[in-house]
Design a protein around this nucleic acid. Structure first.
Lengths: 214, 214
DNA sequence: CGAGGTGTTGACGATGCTCAAGGGGAGTGG
DNA sequence: CCACTCCCCTTGAGCATCGTCAACACCTCG
């Protein structure tokens, strides 16, 4: 595995590419996204350490989305050749990787539901719940707070709302005591209340019980 | 494989289920969906003959979405045991199934992009383009027209807009000469124009060249 | 022939967008 | 060390896309 440091806001792979390797996020936050014909960006997922955001390119030869860093990242590249051989030899490993891509799909479904059916306030709350759970699963949450490097513009592009509106929603959430967000620190004083506001049910993340523990 | 006929508007599997088999659509149209806390429905995908809409349940043990029919369907059930054994024995088959689930994921990403970033008119055009291509790939399109059993309420739930607004958009699209939709027949008089209106690029469907042919 | 699902249309309202301006913090260079 | 710049956050005013509510036409089916 080749380990590479990548600066923030850099594309790792782009729409239309035909990569011969996939990348494992070791540190930092990345995202997959797509740009529409009139230049708007939809972020499909935020990727935390442990994720393999472009594992799908192992079997889909043309990339239909881009992958870029949000913060400085350390990533490990694994060739498709090696991955494929590993999967062929050990069906259990193939299953584990396959399962990862299925969880990505489950996350897409939930985001689609949020964007399509929930109002902005609820969407933001839902996203914060998801990210807290995923960051906690990889040990990046201390108590009820974590490092939060994601900008309001990025939240907007993930949830289908404008930066201005994200700002207003966050203001309201602060006023309601749901979040404490200052600089790049996020604290959740009342987890139950946030889950309720976000209509959040973590089933779709398919976490194992040991990953859920605080 | 056990073949079963199912009436319209029937759930095949539901959120929270733990199925021991997956289902192959043989005829008819089905959809996967999710209901939010306040009762709104987001449809994630429409499934055409040849699709295996709940293949993911092979490796994700708790279903995080429901699957129901829109029209009367004939479906074939295949046990997970049989599927798993087949995949373990023949890695090429595992790859083919895996790839199917990855294409589902690609469709989710594109729908998310549509719902999040495109306006209603464009969303509807995009959906019609996708469905025409997918129906054509399985031989269900004659020239430029096809059977279209999907109601306006269902289109709305798929695209995150209300039935009333779907109706207005369709009216505008008819006026613009993009579609001819009457009863359950859909005709596309100008494919290029519809693709442009929908900002449609079929790359994400990952169709093989022989599936694209008219 | 009545009932229920689907499609259609109008009037009104609200969530969220656009445009615009300004504040604060971090990094850079003179 | 202090402008200066850039990015991000914040806020206000006006507006538009789309939602809500309501009513009615049409068709199929029991």
């Amino acid at each position: 595995m080749q380990i590479v440091a990548i600066k923030e806001n850099q594309d790792i792979v782009r729409v239309g590419d035909n990569p011969s390797r996939s990348c494992l996020i070791l540190s930092g936050i990345a995202c997959t996204y797509k740009i529409t014909g009139d230049g708007k960006r939809q972020i499909h997922n935020f990727h935390v350490p442990g994720d393999i955001p472009d594992l799908q390119s192992l079997h889909l030869k043309v990339l239909d989305n881009s992958l870029g860093t949000l913060t400085p990242c350390s990533v490990g590249f694994i060739t498709h050749e090696a991955l494929d051989e590993l999967c062929e030899r050990h069906y259990r490993i193939a299953k584990a990787f396959w399962r990862e891509t299925l969880i990505d799909g489950a996350i897409f479904r939930e985001w689609m539901t949020s964007i399509g059916q929930r109002e902005a306030y609820s969407r933001v709350a839902h996203l914060l719940c998801e990210m807290m759970m995923r960051l906690r699963a990889v040990g990046l949450v201390n108590g009820s707070s974590c490092h939060w490097p994601i900008t309001q513009a990025e939240i907007g592009d993930a949830l289908g709302i404008t930066t201005v509106h994200v700002n207003r929603v966050l203001k309201a959430m602060r006023a309601d005591g749901l979040i404490e967000l200052k600089g790049d620190r996020l604290n959740i004083p009342d987890w139950e209340k946030l889950m309720q506001a976000g209509d959040f049910d973590p089933t779709y993340l398919h976490l194992e019980s040991h990953q859920v523990a605080a």
